[in-house]
Design a protein around this nucleic acid. Structure first.
Lengths: 224, 224
DNA sequence: ACAGCCCCATGCACATCCTGGTTGTTGAAG
DNA sequence: CTTCAACAACCAGGATGTGCATGGGGCTGT
């Protein structure tokens, strides 16, 4: 679950980032409106958290720009307490919900989850492929009803596979989704983690589910 | 958690209803003061959300009527921004908190939760998890019928765990609930206090109840 | 002044992540 | 069929991150 946080105050930004990551989200940061728009257009996010007061381009204009470019990612707006009028124009310009500063973090989390739940029908539901089960909420994974312990990175990688089964996934695509926004292409980190995953997911089972597509990448599918 | 919303404007009423339901509350609607009083006397609610300007019987009189009939359900009053005088008489007539229109919805939710929390705290019901008992009134704690001496902070921390058992609690959430920290991420105070708690709660017992969830926070649960 | 509590800073232990190198595999050209 | 180059799998060790334990300083109430 990827969230883009657009917030210029570094303290607030990193506070939100850390808190959301503890809740199991993957968080990217943008520090002004322009950067926010660029990042949101580059990569599909599940939610954008947008401060209204921003350098270069304010939050509301940023949302408008996104909507004009047909980016329909839901947006949760952060606004100063007294700027009630902003809220109205915020909803006008395409924001889906708002939160006034200062806010309780618990509040932010529940709004965030509500928006994501509302906007993505099947998200949050358990993912199943063959005899693998994956719970995106608790980040737990089972194969054949036996729980499997994964690290954060291993989990994200598997989640990406589970959301795109039976499709060959290129290293570039995997890097974008599972690793950071900018990425160094000359590393074998993905191979390494696929290897880790195979050890935990496939090694003790007859039916191998993670396959290599030579020259392309990897694929999650039933063996022939 | 059942909430009664007394509000004549249909748009506002259904907006509030929908929002609160998304937060997990069950919401009934009444459209004027009389209906509100009848419903509140019929069925015990955890909270009443009362508009002041209402047909048939205004909100303040409704509250008075309820209190005269010994209904002590907490009331959150909604009032127009300029009617500050109303607020005072509102508090007089037995309202527990108020909110001026127009309000941010997040504000409404957090006040709602605060009121319900405050009220259920006061019931002072003893909290029990496994063989830990905690009395919110006297702030005393027992494990296996043996009293355990905790400092104020240790106690608040444990109480938070006891009110949210079997859930991973992130450091951010703990900091917000137990300390009043908002943006201070550069301290290990929570780790330190969890350590204190473990010494007193878990150290002398076989069954450890406070567990670490790496990268997330802590959880109170039975060992596997 | 002292004791108790709260909080901070530090150092250690260990899990996780990543890099670089080595070995193994594949498929096409000779 | 053999050879070779490209690609993938695997391994080992170092860097980084995260949590735990502990000592001590500041503050407050006695």
């Amino acid at each position: 679950m990827h969230i883009l946080v657009v917030e210029d105050e570094k303290k607030v930004a990193s506070f939100i980032k850390r808190g959301l990551e503890e809740e199991g989200f993957t968080v990217d940061l943008a520090h002004d409106g322009e950067e926010g728009v660029n990042m949101a257009m580059d990569k599909p996010y599940d939610l954008i958290l947008m401060d209204v007061m921003l350098p270069k381009m304010d939050g509301l204009s940023a949302i408008k720009t996104l909507r004009q470019n047909n980016i329909q990612t839901p947006v949760l707006c952060l606004t100063a307490k007294d700027a009630v009028d902003d809220i109205v124009s915020g909803l006008d310009s395409g924001s889906d919900d708002y939160l006034t500063k200062p806010f309780a973090f618990a509040e932010l989390v529940s709004r965030t989850k509500a928006l994501i739940r509302r906007n993505s029908h099947d998200r949050g539901a358990e993912l199943v492929f063959a005899d693998i089960r994956l719970d995106p909420v608790s980040h737990k994974v089972w194969r054949a009803d036996q729980e499997i312990d994964l690290t954060t990175k291993e989990y994200s990688l598997l989640e990406y596979f589970m959301r795109n089964p039976n499709q060959a996934l290129s290293r570039t695509m995997i890097a974008e989704q599972v690793w950071d926004y900018t990425f160094d292409t000359f590393t074998n980190i993905i191979d390494v983690y696929v290897n880790y995953l195979r050890k935990k997911i496939d090694r003790n089972f007859d039916k191998k589910l993670i396959h290599t597509v030579r020259g392309v990448g990897y694929i999650l599918r039933e063996p022939e």
